[in-house]
């Protein structure tokens, strides 16, 4: 999603004034993304739905005080990520968005060097590949996962992502690099199997 989708000034004023139709419109434009974020971070449907509902309940309450210092999307996703991280903290005591997991400390050299970009498009968009993409992302630590989701899946800029998460842009960048490299390794290993598994057999 482009973070500017719902930036229109008049629309934001309607939201602030409590217009219910505008709020429905906001839900229309953002709820699938918020739910996907919840699924990505929390990993199950029940928690993702709780997070989704709480997000819009809080947004509805807080909108009259929205000061337009950020875009409405950034603001909404900030509520959503706070909600998701709170639920996560309840489950995994000690999780902290500011501290980085030990396992994330070192950048490893790329291990899989295989150019799988030329694989046929069907291979790339299969249901199996999609399942693999989800599995690979789920293996990232929450701190990396959430940054990756906001930047590369939802399309927020580095600055917006920093704003949403309340961390600085350098931290966003560091995590994004780690997340991307880890996922690239996973995907390369997966596509190596596919390529060696007979894709090229005549």
């Amino acid at each position: 999603m482009n973070a500017e989708t719902v930036r229109d000034e008049g629309f934001v004023d309607l939201l602030i004034s409590g217009d219910r139709q505008a709020f429905s419109e906001l839900i229309e434009q953002t709820s699938a993304k918020i739910y996907a974020l919840g699924m990505r971070v929390l990993g199950n449907e029940q928690d993702a739905e709780d997070m989704l509902q709480e997000t819009y309940l809080k947004a509805l309450k807080a909108l009259p005080n929205f000061e337009k210092r950020s875009s409405i999307n950034t603001w909404l996703f900030r509520i959503a990520t706070n909600e998701a991280l709170m639920l996560l903290r309840k489950k995994k005591t000690g999780f902290n968005m500011v501290a980085i997991d030990q396992s994330d400390e070192e950048d490893e050299a790329p291990f899989e060097i295989l150019d799988w970009c030329c694989l046929p498009e069907q291979e790339m968009v299969s249901a199996e590949t999609r399942t693999m993409l989800n599995k690979a992302a789920d293996q990232l630590s929450p701190a990396l996962r959430i940054v990756f989701q906001l930047r590369d899946v939802d399309g927020f800029s580095g600055q917006e992502t920093a704003e949403i998460l309340g961390i600085n842009e350098d931290a966003v960048k560091t995590r994004l690099v780690r997340a991307r490299l880890k996922l690239r390794e996973e995907l390369s290993a997966y596509f190596r199997d596919r390529m060696e598994g007979g894709v090229n057999h005549a």
């Binding site: 996907a36 993409l133 399309g155 995907l187």
Partner: peptide, 27 residues
Amino acid sequence: NTLRKTIDLYHDTAENDDLPDKVRSRL
């Protein structure tokens, strides 16, 4: 090249994101 493609593949999954009907009506 593969990093670019990795990002593209994930970005494309977002286009298929849908809110399940039941989740939507409960919301």
